[in-house]
């Protein structure tokens, strides 16, 4: 494997036991490799399984079959079979995932939510706080807002905090699920710059970008998905 991330024969379906055991097949053998410095956009209609791919890579969803290989520390980790503790280590050090919604923690300020990413990676409190302030500032979250818990923030503000908490660390692999969905144009431009900078540092990026302008600006390759199978 030359890439930072390699997906082989990924299969995923959901069995809804509470709804008569109906089985929803979503992914039926996806293959994909992302090289460092590449930004691959998953493209296709709603419900085709784009977010499911990202969630499987992050270990949030359990794959039914296939392998998800991630270059981690000096070796390669298969996220499909990794022990939960190994998945947590990969999430701490290697894979950053910007999900569609910020899961807010009561009472924790935006600045602390962002700094926590770095503190978990062993950065001292002061440097973590500085880095948090700086990226929140770039994403136009003013200082007075940084000290508040994001529960009361607008959708766009929450999304920027969500981006900041991941982009504050320089993860080798980035998963971006609609990172600009609720942003205005000014902030969209900031996010485009941040994504390009990450790619410039050599991050392997796998993302979903509904906004064609954003996709054109950041993607180095587009992978079309339909009915659960990679088409191109």
């Amino acid at each position: 494997m030359t890439g930072a991330l390699r997906i082989e024969g990924l299969e995923k379906s959901f069995v809804l036991h509470t709804q008569g055991g109906v089985r929803l097949p979503v992914l039926a053998g996806l293959d994909l490799e992302v090289e460092p410095g590449e930004c691959v956009a998953l493209h296709g209609p709603s419900g085709v399984g784009k977010s499911t791919v990202l969630r499987c890579v992050h270990g949030n969803y359990r794959a039914d079959a296939g392998r998800i290989l991630v270059r981690h520390r000096e070796g390669v980790m298969n996220m499909v079979t990794a022990h939960p503790r190994e998945v947590l280590a990969v999430r701490r050090e290697t894979i950053g995932h910007v999900s569609q919604f910020l899961r807010v923690i009561p009472r924790v300020s935006a600045a602390d939510v962002v700094a926590e990413t770095l503190r978990d990676r062993g950065t001292d409190r002061e440097s973590a706080d500085d880095a948090a302030r700086s990226i929140l500032h770039r994403l136009n979250i003013p200082p007075e807002l940084q000290q508040l818990a994001p529960a009361t923030f607008s959708g766009g503000e929450q999304q920027r905090v969500n981006l900041a908490r991941v982009l504050v660390a320089h993860y080798p692999v980035l998963l971006l699920d609609e990172p600009t969905a609720s942003l205005d144009r000014e902030n969209r431009e900031v996010v485009i710059d941040l994504i390009r900078e990450a790619a410039g540092r050599g991050a392997a990026i796998l993302g979903i970008f509904h906004d064609a302008a954003v996709r054109d600006a950041v993607a180095t390759r587009v992978v079309a998905m339909d009915t659960g199978r990679e088409a191109a």
């Binding site: 069995v15 036991h17 509470t18 969630r55 270990g59 949030n60 969803y61 359990r62 939960p84 998945v87």
Partner: peptide
């Protein structure tokens, strides 16, 4: 059993 977010977001057992 599993990672907390995995069990809650993609529960397997009925």
């Amino acid at each position: 059993t599993g990672l907390t977010d995995q069990v809650l977001d993609d529960p397997q057992h009925p």
